[in-house]
Nucleic acid binder design. Structure first.
Lengths: 354, 354
DNA sequence: TAATCGATATGCTATATAGCAAAAAATATT
DNA sequence: AATATTTTTTGCTATATAGCATATCGATTA
């Protein structure tokens, strides 16, 4: 005698019958099934009740019990979540994160997964949401690592943007450091020496490594770091405006500015224009992310293109492995991000004159 | 004798006891409860089993049954969904819809609701997602009314952007018609007579009424409609570029253009700039939506500001009533949307000269 | 004092039975 | 042939009982 309850056996039997198409549409009545299978009526009922809860069957009172053909059995319905910390400035409406979500949706759709987005960190509510998800892709920031650990308790997770302190958590990030080195290389190649950096919050890998890339780029190009040329923002458009004000207030304003993201670059460009400076004639600007608007504004923004499609693909592939209980080929992926040169940088004026 | 099953009565009794704090932590044993309440053991069991399924209680075998304090009862954990048809151009990463989602999130957060976004129209998967939601706010387009009806089968829904053909579905929309009349009024007040319209798809209320507003505005200002000055786009940035090309190709190009949304306005501005025309000196442009970038670009875009916060508030209020089984004050709300004047329109050149 | 044993309480599974209401099918009646 | 009536089938609720496994507590024993 097995120790699995009989109603489970009955459940499995019914499921199998559905898969093998022995059972197509309507089940025999509960009483006849009981007789047929040799279990009691109530046992059969319990099994069927569970299957109804699971969505495998549905009932019409006084008519009978039927197989639910709505996908739920033909192909395991899979849904993954995209989690973005709600404390992110303007949340999902921030252009970069909505871009990421869109990329993940597209990638997931290819594999017949659907995606829901959620941002709630309240553990109680989280559980409710998670219970219906097969896996989660989360944008990771240090302040929400606890939440991420919570999620990991419930479903497989892979983290993007920043890697987690806990290295057992799979991650897909981009090479922020070398990306910004490339930016510095490029802008110095145009003759700029006085190069400002508009950094974001340095509470994350992203913040730190983009800044580190800037510093290393200067060093590589034999330019000394000048603390005055570093402005600390918070990635927002408004911060970009403030940053521009700050740089303009300097005795020795930079001729080129590298921004830690596009939104700040946009803010800076707006402010410069307002103050009568032309981008790129007077000031060159480089962004980071390559959000949609970057190429839609005048001048088109030269920026580091975050490979969102690649990020989505890699993250999804890993997640899929985790969901299927397989070992992913790589737990930690770092993708290259390269500069796309558009119209927001010019040769240094004096160089042009020369 | 009431016709509600006894196990439901027991469920309610237990729930009430929890709310009134008569029941705090541990339940009496199933057998004692049965004796106490005068129902049979199995009836009590069924009630408790259901409450466990609902997350109200949890059990530890051989120890007892306990009240689940994890938020789930202290304040009914509520999650609403935001549904956006996945066929929308660039989906949730389209600036306007991500703005809407963000507004809904903020409004919901005020009332301690959390929001998930989903876009899947596959009915099977939909069910799975919906089963965990208390209500849904959906952007409505004619092509997805079937899906919306499906959703309505499962949870309360209120629809935004367009109202549904089925008038039993609550809706919150904006007054697209009068908004565009205002645009025409404004642009004619600057002297423009040759006014182009870049319309979106006319398969929806939005498309139709924005166009109708344009036509009525012309009529109101005694300008005859010229079919040549109407370009049909699909709301995308790329369509804006095409539209600009089209208008430039005309014998008698318009001096001002009203666009059915901001993205097309952006595309047009880009193209005009590329072709050496200055906005607003040579051509005036008005958008619709007031997405974030509208005020972040140069020149800042004059546009109709969709009152997203109001839309979110109204939709949420109605939805909350529906969720609570109350009659909402209004089933159908239309909000005013007004022009915000920025820098993308100038007086007509000839007028300036005069 | 410490270990052992046993009674007890707990939730879990399984079975049998009995009646209800609604729909469908079969039968009888007009 | 059409209608009315009865019977059957269906799922649903409710109850009673009986044994299982595990944990806990208390008394007993070494």
């Amino acid at each position: 005698m097995s120790d699995t309850p009989k109603y489970i056996l009955v459940e499995n039997y019914i499921k199998k019958s559905i898969q093998s198409k022995t059972l197509i549409d309507k089940l025999p009545g509960e009483r006849s099934l009981a007789k047929e299978l040799g279990f009691s009526y109530m046992t059969i009922r319990k099994a069927i009740e569970n299957l109804v809860d699971q969505g495998v069957l549905y009932k019409i009172p006084t008519k009978g019990t039927y197989v639910n053909k709505d996908g739920s059995n033909k192909k395991k319905t899979s849904t993954i979540g995209y989690f973005l910390d709600s404390s992110i400035k303007s949340g999902i409406s921030s252009p970069y994160y909505s871009l990421l979500l869109n990329a993940i949706e597209k990638e997931a759709a290819k594999h017949d997964y659907s995606v829901v987005y959620f941002s709630d960190t309240s553990v109680g509510r989280l559980k409710k949401t998670l219970s219906k998800l097969d896996g989660v892709i989360a944008t990771c920031f240090p302040r929400i690592e606890d939440t991420i650990l919570d999620i990991k308790q419930n479903v497989p997770i892979v983290v993007i943007e920043n890697s987690a302190a806990d290295k057992t958590i799979a991650s897909v990030i981009i090479d922020n450091f070398n990306a910004n080195v490339e930016s510095v290389d490029y802008i110095t190649s145009l003759g700029h020496q006085n190069i400002g950096f508009m950094m974001g919050l340095d509470d994350s890998d992203i913040g730190k490594s983009r800044f580190a890339g800037y510093k290393h780029g200067l060093q590589k190009n034999k330019i000394e770091l000048n603390d005055e040329l570093v402005f600390r923002g918070n990635y927002s458009y408004e911060a970009g405006i403030e940053g521009a004000e700050y740089f303009l207030s300097l005795q020795n304003a930079p001729s080129g500015i590298i921004c830690a993201n596009d939104s700040m670059a946009l803010g800076a460009m707006q402010k410069f224009h307002q103050e009568g400076y032309d981008v790129p004639t007077d000031i060159s600007i480089i962004g980071f992310d390559d959000i949609d608007v970057a190429s839609q504004i005048v001048p088109k923004l030269t920026t580091i293109a975050a490979p969102v499609d690649q990020i989505a693909k890699n993250a999804f592939d890993i997640l899929k492995d985790l969901i299927n209980g397989e070992e992913p080929e790589q737990q930690h992926v770092t993708l290259a991000a390269n500069l796309v040169i558009r119209d927001s940088c010019n040769k240094l004026k004096s160089d042009v004159a020369a």
